[in-house]
Amino acid sequence: MELRDIEIFLALAEELHFGRTAERLHVTPSRISHTIKRQERRIGAPLFERTSRVVRLTPLGRQLRDELLPAHQQIQAAVERATARAHGTTGTLRVGYTTPWCADLVLRAGERFGHLHPGWTVQIREVQFDDPYGPLQRGELDLQLVEFPAFGSIVAGPVLFREPRALMVPAGHPLASRESVTLEDLADIPIVSLRFELPRSAEDLHLPRYTPMGRPVRRGPSYTYWPEVPALVAAGLGGSIVAARAAQFHARPGIAFVPFQDGPTIDYTVLWHTDVQGPPVPPFVDLLRELAGADGGGADGPGDGDGAGGGGAA
């Protein structure tokens, strides 16, 4: 089997769609179909089950994919290393994040990116809520994983994953004993807010001023850095709208996390500045999307990952 035939097989095994595979490899769908049929004749058994509605791997196809993929990745990495040495193609991709689960995703993507693009290293840093876009705008970062909407000269990539929201409340508050809350319940507890202003689109999404029925949402004490929020909530001074996943990372005595029945999800996207045109950006974004999807949190549409809805948090 020639290298190009292996690439076609592995691409179809990932996409499970002849049209998308052809578009990805810049060939015609008939070329993909012809190549797969030739491989199946040579092997002597079908590699894919194909109907008018679905394409899926046969057990033999899955076995072949699992055995070919590591070898193919090694070949790609070897070529990348040789190319990097020949052309001196090296550099650092600087990526920011705002929550620990975004950090986990970036670290996994960075490790894999280093294998696929040996000349490049990935540096990550946490971005604080008091300056959510500053590092990106000042050119200190190339990419950023964030829950805030993009604006101005910042470009939004794909939505990587969507998180349901929860209300973090003092453990002794009446809402803490509920199985779930609604947006109307926001009128019953002060909401911890930021000491600085967010863009209006982000504030409307994360720190609503009114419930759907028009009841005012009171502002509680303000904060600059996320670690202040659980302390304020535990002290009984207010609640905070957070990603539901925050309960796994920030649980502590004195607070409870109650899921919302309604309201939008917190959508995590990747952002970059319009001036960033470096070649590593698109492949790194592709890796983030692939890994987020593999985690079961992939999302459709442009924008598969802290969490805070709402002025809230990681």
Rank of each mutant, 00 (worst) to 15 (best):
G96D: 06
V229A: 06
E49K: 08
G139K: 04
L16N: 02
E49P: 09
R94N: 13
F260Y: 11
Q144F: 03
D262P: 00
G220S: 08
I191E: 05
D286S: 10
S222E: 14
I189E: 05
E197H: 15
R24T: 04
S33C: 09
R252M: 15
A243P: 02
T35L: 01
P190M: 05
P279D: 10
Q144E: 04
A256K: 10
R81L: 10
A109G: 13
Q74N: 08
V169F: 00
H273Q: 02
E147S: 10
E67F: 07
S177M: 08
H115R: 11
M213Q: 15
R42M: 14
A176P: 00
L141M: 14
V270C: 10
Q128N: 04
A244L: 07
R200Y: 07
R31V: 08
L145F: 13
A78D: 04
A84I: 12
G172P: 06
Q73I: 11
T224P: 03
T89E: 14
I75F: 15
G44K: 12
A246V: 07
E184M: 03
R162V: 06
Q144T: 06
V169S: 12
G91K: 10
R65E: 12
L287I: 01
E126G: 15
L271R: 01
D66V: 03
V27H: 02
M213V: 13
V258D: 01
A82Q: 02
F48P: 04
W120Q: 03
P118A: 08
E15N: 01
G139M: 09
E49D: 15
D286Q: 13
D131L: 01
P59F: 07
V169N: 13
W101A: 08
Q74V: 15
I32H: 06
V169T: 03
G305Y: 01
A246G: 14
G312H: 09
A86R: 13
R219D: 12
T98Y: 12
Y133W: 13
P100W: 11
R112L: 04
Y225H: 15
